[in-house]
Nucleic acid binder design. Structure first.
Lengths: 144, 144
DNA sequence: CGTTGTTAGTTACAAAATCAACCGTTAACT
DNA sequence: AGTTAACGGTTGATTTTGTAACTAACAACG
């Protein structure tokens, strides 16, 4: 009964979460069904696909994922021959990660789908909404 | 190494997720530290606080949370005397959920914090960004 | 050198999310 | 009524995440 003037749908953390979940649902289905990947795994794959050879540490800095998540994702991707790991010669704590050709193929495939998917989302918005949205999201994502 | 023109920071599902995570971090800390609640739990609390008496089913429809999450959140909130449950007289599958006075107090407390918190986030954006952002997010969150 | 602190990455264990199967109840159809 | 399907909600098994403690390697400073 007694209702209330506070609007959950206007509370930014909630609204952001709803939008994020809704807008990633169908894409999630793709990398899951097609490659049996988790979100952490396609993220690692994408980082390597986009930026080329990296260490887990660099991926962590860019993505803000916790290092245990990355460690596990790398393990799975290595098991499935999507990437190879090689210790650095100078600093043997570091491991350089490279996509295999299989990994690159998966990346290219998923990137294609991601681009079309993103275009589909953009279509729901006006040009101005798209520009302002991305700008605003970047500001919000910034500090952490 | 071979880099790539695809920009992860422009991929909406990724960007949305980053923004959502960053912007809920500090608030999460509050309901966790202050009331030992999980995200699912404050969501149920907020739904009841805002809309008054509801069933788990209705909460599920509004929030899109899975029913097992809701069931467990309701259980915990009932254990801690934040809400009471009473079966419907006509349809005994349904259970009506009501906040206790303790639950309402927690809700009011957290709502206050949420409003200030949201204002703090809004301050990072211009008035126009705020308006367009929320509008766009609502569109994206819409279909599911 | 040797101690102490830091870093990259892993592992172990607990907390939480997911998924399917389930129970009791109501609805639909014969 | 009697059967079957659907619904609200719960439970249990499995998967995934989070947290902390750990290993191995390097760095800094005496």
């Amino acid at each position: 009964m007694e209702s209330d003037d506070f609007d959950l749908q206007d509370f930014l953390p909630y609204l952001l979460n709803q939008a994020a979940e809704a807008s990633s649902l169908a894409f999630q289905q793709v990398y899951k069904d097609r490659y049996g990947m988790l979100r952490t795994e396609w993220r690692v794959l994408f980082h390597l696909g986009i930026y080329g050879r990296m260490t887990a540490r660099e991926i962590g800095q860019r993505s803000k994922m916790h290092k245990t998540k990355i460690s596990r994702a790398v393990q799975k991707l290595a098991d499935r021959r999507f990437l190879t790991r090689r210790p650095d010669d100078d600093d043997r704590r570091l491991e350089w990660l490279d996509l295999t050709s299989q990994g690159r193929a998966a990346y290219r495939d998923l990137r294609e789908i991601a681009m079309r998917y993103d275009a589909g989302l953009s279509d729901k918005l006006t040009a101005r909404e798209n520009a302002v949205l991305r700008q605003a999201l970047r500001k919000l994502a910034q500090d952490r």
